[in-house]
């Protein structure tokens, strides 16, 4: 087991009062809490800070932690031989276990040694995971292989970090940045306590052609100036093969052409729409003939897109 210096993490002396510990924690929580901080490393940092605080704010846990002695951060160590029995734990091997798991299980372990607390149901922990899926998988529905490690008690009552792997079915109808609750897929409950839940944040891998808003898809549709002016019919890709789209004569850049029910599936079996957003692209090099024809057009046309300037 690796040692973590909880006092060092909170930036307080080992003799710090409860008030000093609380003040230090609050300051660091404002700095690193993932719901508050913009620091990308904030979440990991906050976990350390919260772990340190949850142990040091509790007089019993703090006394037990202090009895572990002082070691260098990250150094492998074993608690003193009689430490487990003094703290009311069953004997641990301390292999495969993290200091945070040990103190998270402290109350539970203590509880098991008291007659009144024996067999008290302990609910499993909730977890949150993020997963990215392709737009195509979101369109058809998919199955994800998910996994993380959870602290669990084995048959001997030993606390261990156990890999928890399972498949999660993502039905079609999922939207970008949608959140799902997977019941009972979190940490295992103990003594009849219900298993924890898993909150899954699903986002889409950016697609090379389509952008997605709710159940609608957007695609940029490049047009030549003459296609936009004269109108035409163009094959537009969708997630289920290309469709013909009629471009009306006199189409400008930035117009949205709706192709009904060619977007993403909805929960109610219907489909969103696909919007083709027109973008007029001009050629950067011209043949002699093109230049002549465009010059003839410029000479003959009375069209003035800036008449409102006058």
């Amino acid at each position: 087991m690796k040692f973590k210096d909880y006092y060092e993490i909170l930036g307080v002396a080992r003799t710090a009062s409860n008030d000093e510990i609380k003040k230090a924690y609050r300051k660091l929580a404002h700095q690193y809490h993932p719901d508050v901080s913009k620091d990308p490393a904030g979440e990991e940092k906050f976990k350390e800070v919260a772990e340190a605080y949850s142990t040091l704010k509790d007089a019993e846990k703090r006394a037990a932690y202090d009895q572990l002695g002082k070691h260098a951060s990250g150094q492998e160590f074993k608690p003193p031989p009689d430490w487990s029995s003094q703290q009311g734990f069953q004997e641990y091997t301390f292999d495969d276990i993290d200091l945070s798991d040990l103190f998270a299980g402290f109350a539970k372990g203590k509880g098991r040694t008291h007659q009144s607390g024996r067999d008290r149901p302990i609910p499993g922990q909730d977890y949150e995971l993020s997963a990215q899926i392709s737009l195509e998988d979101a369109f058809r529905g998919t199955t994800l292989d998910l996994g993380f490690t959870v602290p669990e008690y084995d048959i001997q009552g030993q606390l261990k970090s156990v890999p928890h792997a399972f498949k999660a079915r993502i039905p079609k109808g999922v939207t970008n940045n949608q959140k799902m609750l997977l019941r009972g897929k979190g940490g295992k409950g103990f003594h009849g306590g219900h298993d924890g839940n898993l909150y899954l944040n699903i986002s889409f891998v950016p697609h090379r052609l389509f952008r997605v808003i709710d159940n609608d898809l957007y695609i940029d549709l490049p047009l030549t100036p003459w296609e936009a002016t004269l109108g035409t019919t163009i094959k537009v890709p969708t997630l289920e093969g290309a469709v013909n789209l009629k471009i009306p004569a006199g189409t400008s850049s930035g117009q949205k052409l709706r192709i009904a029910k060619r977007g993403m599936p909805k929960h109610n079996q219907e489909f969103g729409d696909l919007f083709a957003v027109t973008k007029i692209i001009v050629p950067t090099t011209l043949s002699d003939q093109e230049r002549v024809l465009l010059q003839q057009l410029a000479d003959a046309s009375t069209f003035n897109p800036r008449h409102h300037f006058e």
């Binding site: 940045n177 952008r211 997605v212 808003i213 709710d214 957007y218 789209l245 009629k246 009306p248 189409t251 930035g254 117009q255 949205k256 052409l257 709706r258 192709i259 009904a260 919007f275 957003v277």
Partner: peptide, 15 residues
């Protein structure tokens, strides 16, 4: 914000 980043206010033409 997410919606406004991907859409514009131009009128929509139905196919």
């Amino acid at each position: 914000l997410q919606r406004s980043q991907h859409t514009n206010s131009a009128p929509t033409i139905d196919e």
